[in-house]
């Protein structure tokens, strides 16, 4: 099943504003991050420190991706 992923800040350089990625059944969020790193090895380092938000809440990365909604990839904060 394809899932929409939205990117922010420095991640856009690697992936653009959003992409659609095939997610296998039982795949975890952590797996997805790894897969994105394989698609773009230069982004690997940033991806290891990213969080993922679904429905405006951070999800534990070891959980299986279950919702049908968009995933938001959140690089480390640098506000202020």
């Amino acid at each position: 099943m394809n899932r929409k992923i939205v990117y922010f800040a420095g991640l856009k350089k690697f992936f653009g504003d959003e992409t659609s990625v095939e997610v296998a059944p039982e795949e975890s969020y952590a797996c997805l991050l790894e897969k994105l790193g394989e698609l773009n090895p230069e982004a690997k380092e940033v991806l290891t420190s990213c969080r993922i938000a679904v429905n405006e809440k951070f999800v534990p990365l070891d959980e299986t991706i279950k919702d049908q909604t968009t995933l938001f990839l959140i690089p480390p904060s640098s506000g202020g």
């Binding site: 800040a9 904060s77 202020g80």
Partner: peptide, 28 residues
């Protein structure tokens, strides 16, 4: 409040330098 806002909230700083380059910031 400011420490938590800087460290946790999804906000990002893009710094632009006098030499024409730019870079996404990290706070910690």
């Amino acid at each position: 409040i400011i420490d938590r806002v800087k460290n946790e909230v999804p906000i990002w700083k893009h710094e632009f330098f006098a030499d024409g380059t730019s870079e996404w910031g990290q706070n910690c």
